[in-house]
Design a binder for these strands. Structure first.
Length: 284
DNA sequence: AACACGCACAACCGCAGGTTT
DNA sequence: TAAACCTGCGGTTGTGCGTGT
């Protein structure tokens, strides 16, 4: 793969940008627009490499950039998103209007990490004293949730499923088995940071579909479905809007395991945490 | 006043993956 | 199809500033 090494290009300025350089770059981009970063230095008359121009524009010169004074709400959101996404700074920055990935990364490394480490060491020493061990779901990464369409299902259910599927997220992967059953897999964390996660209508749709599942379970469907239904009712808090996933797919995956209740509980608890987070964001 | 130290943040670097030729 | 090119990302480094000694 080709690589653009600024360091290998001679005669280029390095280090802090001067106000004149900033002005030249700003004027050029205002006239010609962003993109084609490699050509910008030559055309604008800057002794900088394209990557440096891009970085300067995106992190500093771009309009509507907020600088400094990260609020408590923003800080809280960064911590929550980092819990979900890890060091995916650009994704985190995407949920904080006006903030750049570089700023959030710096803020995390210099400020938040220390705060969190401080809290964790306090918690550790408390746990050591009281001999509390962390629950498994507190340590696990987030899994994948599946939405399935059972072709033998009612037309009403299918229509709802298709509506939900169309709305979830663009980069779902679709799998089909021999019986024609389909599953759309998507990563929870990607969904939660997408615009769709704050779309109330989408959640209403999910809720509606979930109710059709429940009513079909009540009508006496397969044993596995009702087992799942019981599990879901047991572990799903009534305060949460349910996120959809098919009982068939989940059970096919998990029933092979010896400890199905433990496994299901673990996954549902994680999903529950995510949804609680989402609901908290909406209410705050 | 001078120095050392730590912190915050801007900027750099290397890499990966997507796009173009 | 493969090489070249471009862009974006995350980790790391460099530097200026404030504070303590």
């Amino acid at each position: 793969m080709g690589k653009t090494a600024c360091s290998s290009e001679e005669g280029l300025n390095k280090g802090a940008w001067s106000s004149q350089e900033d002005q030249i770059l700003t004027d050029y981009i205002k006239t010609h627009g962003e993109g084609k970063w490699r050509n910008i230095p030559k055309q604008a008359g800057l002794k900088r490499c394209g990557k440096s121009c891009r970085l300067r524009w995106l992190n500093y010169l771009r309009p509507n950039i907020k600088r400094g004074n990260i609020s408590l709400e923003e800080e809280d959101l960064i911590i929550r998103l980092h819990k979900l996404l890890g060091n995916r700074w650009s994704l985190i920055a995407g949920r904080l209007p006006g903030r750049t990935d570089n700023e959030i990364k710096n803020y995390w490394n210099t400020t938040l990490l220390k705060k969190i480490q401080g809290k964790q060491s306090k918690l550790r020493s408390k746990n050591e004293k009281t001999k509390v061990t962390p629950k498994p779901h507190e340590l696990d990464n987030i899994g994948i949730i599946s939405v399935a369409a059972d072709h033998a299902a009612s037309e009403e259910k299918l229509n709802l499923e298709n509506k939900v599927k169309d709305n979830i997220i663009t980069n779902t992967s679709c799998q089909k088995d021999n019986s024609g059953k389909q599953a759309w897999n998507f990563k929870v964390e990607e969904f939660l940071v997408s615009d769709k996660s704050s779309d109330i209508d989408f959640w209403k749709l999910c809720h509606e579909l979930s109710e059709t599942f429940d009513s079909e379970e009540g009508g006496g469907s397969s044993t596995s479905s009702s087992s799942y239904g019981e599990l879901r009712r047991k572990y799903w808090p009534s305060s949460c809007q349910p996120l959809l996933f098919s009982e068939e797919i989940m059970l096919e995956e998990w029933i092979k395991k010896d400890d199905i209740v433990g496994c299901t509980h673990q996954k549902l608890t994680k999903i529950d945490e995510l949804l609680n987070d989402r609901l908290n964001w909406n209410s705050s």
